[in-house]
Write a protein that binds this DNA or RNA. Structure first.
Ligand code: MN
Ligand code: MN
Ligand code: ZN
Ligand code: ZN
Lengths: 137, 137
DNA sequence: TATCAGTTTGTAATGAATACAAAAATGATG
DNA sequence: CATCATTTTTGTATTCATTACAAACTGATA
């Protein structure tokens, strides 16, 4: 196992997750992915390397990662869940033409808030939708 | 037809929508509803009054209202689309315990923006998730 | 080796939304 | 009123993401 895989392995262990081969591959794929993949994106890519890979394993793994706070779900499209590694707070832009999802780095004054109107905040999502820079041309 | 229904009728006409009975009832229900209903919520309520009502009509109507800009879709839960009347910009809080969706009125500095990172904005959604005021007790 | 918990896999089921075509309503025209 | 075209509504079948469930597999331990 190379050094990148060792890092991924220890990241799983740090979150109390037994580092199986499938889980390593799922986490590696999400980390390396730029475009907030769906469960199916992950499956379609991993099944090339692991022919016995099951879609159910992808879902099981993603739900485990969610519980342990390793990944964050994005419900921006409304048709399927997209995933990304839990990192610094940022917002997202969905292009209604090409479907691409862009990271948007803006200083949101609410990012640090723990409550709104007395409700206890656990997640904050900022979703923009429209036509992306590329598709405008 | 009472005066409230007349208002709803002219609201449809203002948006270039022929005011059929089904459409009047759907719009009336969404306007009067406090909790951002799903297509199924609307169906279950209207079928009491209109026994022949079809789920397909609800979906057709909602998609028409969306095209004409009468309603806004919320993808906050990730499992189904919620709808609300197009009004002033506001954000939403989803309680992960009871499932209720609250309006959140905060002055978001991005509400007026027409672009982010060169992307043309058409919709802005601010979603908070956590435990609501009621469920905290 | 026998056992056992945790993991992976395949198949079946669920549920929101769409596709599609028949039936019903509407509305203009003679 | 009768006819005919257009729009709207309805019911059924289908799609697709996700979950439910149980059998097969794995790896550690006694
Ligand atoms: Mn992101
Ligand atoms: Mn609202
Ligand atoms: Zn685009
Ligand atoms: Zn609550």
């Amino acid at each position: 196992m190379n050094t990148k895989m060792m890092n991924i392995k220890s990241e799983l262990e740090k979150h109390g997750i037994k580092p199986t081969y499938q889980r390593l591959c799922v986490l590696e794929f999400i980390e390396q992915s730029q475009d907030h993949p769906t469960a199916d994106h992950i499956y379609e890519n991993l099944v090339k390397k692991i022919p016995t890979m099951s879609r159910t394993t992808i879902y099981n793994t993603l739900n485990l990662f969610l519980e342990k706070g390793l990944v964050v779900p994005l419900t921006i499209t409304g048709t399927e869940v997209r995933y990304e590694i839990t990192t610094g707070q940022h917002h997202h832009f969905l292009c209604l033409k090409c479907g691409r999802i862009y990271d948007v780095n803006i200083q949101c004054p609410l990012s640090q808030s723990k409550t709104v109107d007395g409700h206890q905040i656990q997640e904050i999502h900022g979703y923009f939708k429209g036509i992306c820079k590329n598709c405008l041309n």
